[in-house]
């Protein structure tokens, strides 16, 4: 299939990436080539995928003390009063 610039732009928006003109050109070409190659999957008959995965061993959901809180917070790009700071997500949040 042809990968148009508009399609790449839509995918980029879904993935929250803003691409430069040059990136859009290059990535459209690369994606188009890849997607064309993926057409071979159309020959695979049936869609059932069975249940090959082993069931995971679950652990008990128990509360345990963690000393990581402050250390984790120290990795955040912007923090105030023990909270992570971001632009507003309501009202002025843009098209989220």
């Amino acid at each position: 299939m042809d990968m148009t610039h508009k399609q790449v732009e839509e995918l980029a928006h879904l993935a929250r990436l803003s691409l430069t003109m040059q990136e859009r050109e290059e990535l459209a070409g690369q994606l188009e080539q890849m997607v064309a190659y993926l057409q071979v999957l159309a020959q695979v008959e049936g869609e059932e995928c069975g249940t090959m995965e082993e069931p995971c061993a679950l652990r008990y959901d128990e509360v345990e003390p963690s000393q990581l809180g402050d250390k984790l917070l120290s990795q955040a790009p912007q923090v105030a009063d023990g909270y992570v700071v971001t632009p507003r997500s309501v009202g002025e949040g843009g098209m989220a």
Binding site: R16, L17, S18, R88
Partner: peptide, 9 residues
Amino acid sequence: YHNLTQMYE
């Protein structure tokens, strides 16, 4: 950035 989406992008 000017808003949240732009910050992500």
